[in-house]
Each structure stands twice: as structure tokens, then as C-alpha cells.
Design a protein around this nucleic acid. Sequence first.
RNA 1: GCGCCCGUAGCUCAGCUGGAUAGAGCAACGGACUUCUAAUCCGUAGGUCGUGGGUUCAAAUCCCUCCGGGCGUACCA
Length: 550
Amino acid sequence: MSEQEYLKTKLSKALESKGFACSGEFEITLERPKNPEHGDFATNVAMLLASKLKRSPREIAAELLDELDLDSKIVSKAEIAGAGFINFHLENQYLGESLTTILKELDKFGCSDWGARKKVQIEFVSANPTGPLNVVNARAATVGDVLVNLFNAVGFDAKREYYVNDAGRQIRLLGKSLSARYMELIGREEPFPEEGYHGDYIRQLAKDIHTEHGEKFGSVEQNQRWQEFSELALEKILAEQQQTLSDFRVNFDIWFRESDLRTKNVHLKVLETLSENGHVYEKDGAKWFKSSEFGDEKDRVLVTSEGEPTYFLVDISYHVDKYQRGFEKLFDLWGPDHHGYIPRMKAALVALDYPDGSFEVNIIQQVNLLEKGEVVKMSKRAGKIIEMKELIDEVGVDVARFFFVARRSQSPLDFDIDLAKNTSEENPVFYVQYAHARICNIIKHAEERAFKMPDHANLNLLEQEEELALIKKLLEFPDIVSKAAKFLEPHRIPNYLQDLAATFHRFYHHHRVVTEDKALTEARLILIKCTKIVLANAFKLLGISAPERM
RNA sequence: GCGCCCGUAGCUCAGCUGGAUAGAGCAACGGACUUCUAAUCCGUAGGUCGUGGGUUCAAAUCCCUCCGGGCGUACCA
């Protein structure tokens, strides 16, 4: 049992036996006070009860305190403070011994099981296969990947999925664009499609195909050529995207193809179900979904007057398919340009009787690249776009991942390229990685002095302020992981890492690990080993490396 | 017009879902290498938490007004 659970149990028992509140009536909150003088944990229950019981909070706190019956081996001091807080101070000896939990759990330290193996899925990036991935895709890739790591760490069975929009109008346009470029290459005119894809990568693709296949497509009938070029372009661009993502250490469990839904007519079945339930009507030759009855601001078209299923309809069927594959909870990460799309998708899934709240969307906000303090203006027309691949080649995977996940994903991110490339003290990534490298070096140094890493030591010797601060910081880790997962806020991990690294560096500068004092050396070796474990576990969640030396 | 996101130190951002004196990093200034790596540490300075109201023992946090910035608002995907 963690010290938090211990305190909560004791508190709720005391509340009941005093008749202040029944168990489950409200949640007992324990917080970690900012000010160390306020102890390691504090609770405000007495203040919350004051108005209900019509008594002074401090009076209530005093009675609770009498009733608590705390183990003095765990809690050294419990006192009333301020307006009616109860502050708990943990016993140093207990703190030291709790390090053994970390030694025992190793790479499992920080994990929990509240997910109960529930199947969840995160769909992210899902960029159109009509061009290279951009920097927002890179941000989404990082956030999604880390979220899955977090979910799995807290006991869910979480999967990464990428939706490939390999059907519909855009793919036809892609084929036509490529065809026009190809024909141009072999000296034959073919008008470039309106709203076609102008990027240089299309020209490059045309060249590749020309080198590979020569002029053979020149004689193919136009519709046939468009079709073949659509497929060729799609597969090549998709392969490129997959390569970029895997170089970025993001590995999807499933690449789901929209065309699979279409060939199996899954979307038509969904249309049928919605119709049967009376959620569909016809107007102006189109079929509409009554999404406004489920919280959307207006109704939406499912099938156009020309008989084309809309992207929306197919997307609904995609989400239905996810449920049918056994996922109980669906998370989508979408770009900022799609947030208006959320209400209608939620509406559709509720209309189909999937539990409200089982589908959630997080918007990944835009990325502003900064160079020399200036925003790098990007424009598709001018062909000035920084691709995901370029950015990563430039700054490195570790740095890019850390930067992308270090901010709340619903806020726009300023990505300072100069800072990211900076391999000095200003770069927070090196700051945290350096802590790990430094520990490895100390351990190596200890071994050279014939100190083997001990299995156990007298951890009561760890009583210096910086040692205790470090231990407490380490013990916070499971809580940080849980909350990062619970609130879908992966940025808590980088924040914590910087905090932990700072606490460690401070300890390092105040105390030597390897000294003549054998017992103390052993205790401190265990302390830094635990620090190393927690750092490595956090790095693993973020998908960045834990360097042994720098 | 309507909807969503954002507004906290010069800059980039945290702030534990309502708690105690609002915190980091960078930039600035002053110190610390004969030591287990100075990619580090110690210290100084820096704030009307956009504005005005409300809710209460308590508001950066919750509700409303307004101001400013970004994005969206298709029988497109």
C-alpha cells in the first residue's frame, strides 16, 4: 500500500467513527504541499466539512487527529495548520526503506493496474496519403505514441492505429496529378487537374516511375492510367510515411485502410442502421443525418445528391468497426482544422447506441517553427514547407520527441529550432539525459574503487535534506504516470523529468556518493541506482534514449 | 455572427481539476572546476495571473461580461 492509500484509509475510518461523513460520501483529497514546512501530504477535509457540520474547521481537524491512530513508523508528525489543514510528515526511515520498492519493481516502477486490461485504441496522425508528413503530424505522432505508452503503463491494453484515407476523390486527384507530371516528362501534354497536388514530390514520383517503368504508361488508356497511378502514388507515399514514422520510433499496430470499409460496404450498413432508427432523412436529393438532435449545431450529409458517400459516413463506419473489434474506449488525435468535426462524430456514435464518453477526441494544436526568434513562414504555394523528416534529421529524434510532448497538446507549440539544435546547457533534453549519464559514470567510478552495487544497505543513513528530497521526488513517479494517463496529459512526464533531474543534480553537488564511509557509500549507491531506474522508466515512456555517457 | 483553443516573469511554459507566501527553463546579473563529467551547482533580480464582476472560509483555477490572439464554421477530406 502506498503512503497515500494508507493515509486515505485512515482518514475515512476516522471520519466514519466520528460520524462526520460516511465512506464514499466524498472523495478525500491529499495534496503534496508546495512548502516543505507543510509536510509531505496535506488534507483539507476539515475545511470541507466545516459548513456541513457548522463547526470551526480547526476544531474538526483536532478531533480527526485524535481519532487517526497513525503508525509512527510511517508518519512522524501530523499537525493542524493554517485555516484547518492537516499536514502529515513522513518518517525519514520509512522514506529510505521505500526505495526498496523501486529496486524490486525496476522497470515496472511507476506502473499500475487500474486500466484492468481494458482494450483501448488511439488513432493518430492519419494523414492523407497525398504527400509527405508535416511537423504537426510529428507532434501528433509523439503525443499519440506516448499516450499509448502511458495507457499501457497503467494497465490498459492500448493499441496504436493509423487510418489510411486511400479512397475517394483525393486519391483520384492524386492519380491525375501524377499522370499529368508523368506525361509532361515523356513529352506529352495532359492538363493538370484543377485542385490537383502541386508539390515537388509529385514531380519526383513521376521521375521515379519513369526511371523504373520507362514510357510504358504513355500508351495506357487514360482512365486506366489514372487508376494505376493512384495506386502507385498511394503506395509510394504511404511507404515513405511509414519509414518516416518508424525512424521516429513510432510503430503502429494497425494501418487501417478506408478502402477496406468501402469494398465491404460497411458504411452502407451503418447508413441502414441509422435510417432504421429514424436518424436519417432526404432533402435536396441528399441523405442527411439528424446530428442536431444529438448536440451538433446542424444536420450533416451522409450521401451527396450525386450518390457519393461522404467522408463523414465512411468515418462513422470506421469508428463502428473499431467498437466491433472489441475496443471499449476510443481516442482520436486530430489536427486543429478538424475540431468542428467532433460534435457530429460524437453525435453519430451516440445515435448508434455506443456509450456516451467512450469516444474522445484530443485536438493537437499547430506547431510554429522558430528560427533566430522568428516564426518560419510556411506556404504550400511557395513550396516552402518544412517536412517532418527534415525537422527530425536536423534536430534528432530524442530532442524532437521531448519538445513535442513537453507542452500541453491543446496549446499551440513554439518549436525553437535553434534551441533544439543547441547541444549545451540551454537544452532541457540534455539536462535530463545528463543526469542519467552522470549516474552511470558514478556507478562506474564506484566499481573502479571496488564498490559493487549492493543488493541492500542501511538506508536510514540517507537523512540529508537533498537525499530526502530526492527520495520523495522518486516516490512521486507512479502518481505522475497515473495522472498523465488519466488526464491525457503526457506533458507531465517531461515536466517531472526536469524536476527530478534538478533534484538529482542538486544532491550531486552537495554530497559525494563514493567516499571512505562504506555504509554511507552503499546507501547512496542505492539511491542513485533508484534515480537511474526512474529516469530510464520516464525516458522509455517518452521514447527517448537513456545515454550511459555524454 | 456562432463554436473551440489560448492569454501567468523580458521569452517559452508549469501550476497537482478550488487551498497555505503563484513556480520552472531560457535570457540578465554575481559567484563555484586539484573533486564521482561545470551539458552541473549556488545566489540576485524579475508578477495588477488580459479586464471587470460573481460564487465562498478560500479563485490563476469554477460562472458571466468585455478586450486581444489563433483555428474552425461545405452536398471537401
